[in-house]
Design a binder for these strands. Structure first.
Length: 278
DNA sequence: AATGGGACCTGCGCGC
DNA sequence: TGCGCGCAGGTCCCAT
């Protein structure tokens, strides 16, 4: 699924296209999508409300409505939030929901749509009064782009866990997924199986810098379209071509020329260079 | 406390 | 061309 840079890219796209627009129609084709409240109440809660802001917490999109409620969207692995300016939404497969919007300002009154497509159907929608009502968010650790280096070091030192698995734990930091965990560890020269508490302060500071750098660089490029991820306008992000190790098993390490390995770590495919990650 | 495995779903690419 | 297997940007739940 989209990780922090991808969700942030979508957030920015939606902020440009849907803020100020009013939700006119809500069509839920797959009721399993709606996790809270019941489907009928969810639809009632969205209908007629204008979107005032688009925020993000970790990998969760938060669309604030004019009545103070929050429409939360988790894309999981294959969810796409596509904004369509045309009268009819473009042809998409696996559409689970469709939202019709009306331009808020009187004159144009243009109609547009938000289309939620999600092949694997893991995505989730909520309507809540506060993001904290979503269990994942209530337990979520800090945003990696907002934390300070000394705080990060304290957190890493305080756990005895495989560093790769720790980075993926949303209750540790919110927003990091498999791609950026692999990439940050590669850039920092840290083996994904290292135990967090055993890392030197030097290494932890390096990891902090590289994590931040890779997330920010990816946001600038619009995220990594390795497979399913698309921006809200349907286009691809450019960062996949800049990934050093993710998805590159058997390729040459750009740093030392060794071979990139793929191993299962924490039940996830993990890409790294055994030559320069120690 | 931390780790491993399975579950939830569907589709794509690969080897034979 | 067809079939089976492995694999996938996530998270939850249970067992050890």
């Amino acid at each position: 699924m989209p990780e922090l840079p991808e969700v942030e890219t979508i957030r920015r796209g939606l902020a440009r296209s849907v803020i100020g627009k009013r939700i006119e129609e809500v069509h839920i084709f797959d009721p399993v999508l709606i996790r809270k409240p019941a489907v009928r109440a969810f639809i009632r809660g969205l209908k007629g409300k204008a979107v005032t802001e688009v925020a993000r917490r970790g990998k969760v999109l938060l669309l604030n409505l004019e009545d103070g409620k929050v429409w939360a969207v988790h894309l999981r692995m294959t969810g796409k939030m596509l904004f369509h300016d045309q009268k009819q939404p473009r042809k998409e497969k696996a559409i689970r929901a469709l939202i019709a919007l009306r331009g808020k300002t009187s004159r144009a009154e243009a109609r547009s749509h938000l289309c939620f497509s999600d092949t694997r159907r893991f995505g989730e929608w909520y309507l809540v009064s506060h993001p904290g009502e979503i269990p994942l968010i209530s337990r979520m650790g800090p945003e990696p782009l907002e934390i300070r280096p000394n705080e990060f070091a304290r957190m890493v030192k305080g756990k005895d866990r495989l560093i790769k698995v720790l980075l993926l734990d949303q209750s540790f930091l919110g927003g990091i997924g498999n791609i950026y965990a692999c990439e940050a560890l590669f850039r920092a020269g840290i083996h994904p199986r290292r135990i967090s508490s055993s890392l030197s302060y030097n290494k932890i500071n390096k990891l902090y810098d590289e994590l931040k750098a890779v997330l920010e660089a990816s946001i600038k490029a619009g995220g990594s379209s390795v497979r399913n991820y698309r921006k809200s306008d349907g286009s691809e992000g450019w960062f996949a071509r800049r990934l050093s190790v993710y998805g590159r098993e058997g390729e040459k390490c750009p740093r030392c020329g060794g071979r990139i390995l793929r191993k299962e770590i924490g039940s996830r495919g993990t890409f790294f260079c055994p030559g320069c990650q120690r």
